[in-house]
């Protein structure tokens, strides 16, 4: 499999020009920042509140913008052009994910700054946030591959937002239904747990398991996305 930075940056550049002229999607980038300003002014406290905004950034920018970019390529029949070009699956995946990843990083960093969140161990939190961003971009790719249009992606993102929002609505039921304990392994809850432990003074070694769980999600979501992408290369 080839890996050409020229191809990857060409797709990134194309996506940047395309997105900058797409008001519908690009205005989404502002939403988490507005929330962060609002929360910052309200003087929010507590890790859970900060991660509510951070997760909003992940879902709206990482997952939603990415799913829109992919879904629009499908809707307009341009994805097939990329698939039929000499660019490898890895190059197309990297090229198509880079813009959403950069936008997510900028928006999440901006949200953290605007909401006044100062992690006790920035390096560990940065690693966790980068891994989470990669996961949500992968999730967006998968949604984009499954949906047929930007409008459909906009609908599908709503339950995703519900499921992956900070402090999952299912956690209060774990005591009553032990099977729901699996929810605790979701990447958003792992990130929240990691952040709480870092705030309590934990170092990299103490939160390694949380990072590995998020990493596992990253690998699984991208493997599934790659499989679906390969399936989409051939018509039924």
């Amino acid at each position: 499999m080839t890996f050409s930075t020229r191809r990857i940056f060409a797709i990134l550049q194309k996506d940047y020009k395309d997105l900058s002229r797409n008001l519908f999607v690009s205005t989404t980038l502002i939403m988490p920042l507005l929330m962060a300003v609002l929360f910052g002014r309200m003087g929010i406290e507590g890790i859970a509140s900060h991660y509510l905004i951070i997760n909003l950034g992940f879902i709206l920018v990482g997952a939603y913008v990415q799913s829109s970019l992919i879904a629009e390529e499908k809707e307009k029949n341009t994805l097939r052009g990329l698939m039929l070009s000499p660019a490898s699956t890895l190059e197309i995946f990297c090229g198509k994910s880079l813009l959403s990843f950069i936008a997510t990083a900028v928006v999440v960093a901006g949200s953290i700054w605007l909401s006044g969140y100062n992690p006790r161990n920035l390096a560990v939190i940065a690693i966790a946030l980068v891994l989470s961003a990669v996961f949500y971009v992968g999730l967006g790719t998968l949604i984009g591959l499954f949906t047929k249009s930007v409008m459909e992606a906009s609908v599908v993102i709503v339950p995703v937002m519900f499921i992956f929002s900070s402090g999952s609505f299912l956690t209060p039921f774990i005591d009553k239904y032990p099977v729901l304990a699996v929810v605790e392994y979701m990447p958003n809850l792992q990130l929240l747990e990691l952040a709480n432990r870092v705030e309590a003074g934990a170092g990299l070694g103490d939160v390694l398991l949380h990072l590995l769980v998020i990493l596992a999600w990253v690998l699984v979501i991208h493997a599934v996305a790659a499989y679906v992408y390969k399936k989409r290369m051939v018509d039924e």
């Binding site: 194309k14 020009k17 307009k76 097939r80 052009g81």
Partner: peptide, 9 residues
């Protein structure tokens, strides 16, 4: 028949 271009570019 399904070859397409990027409309905003």
């Amino acid at each position: 028949d399904n070859t397409a271009l990027y409309g905003r570019l």
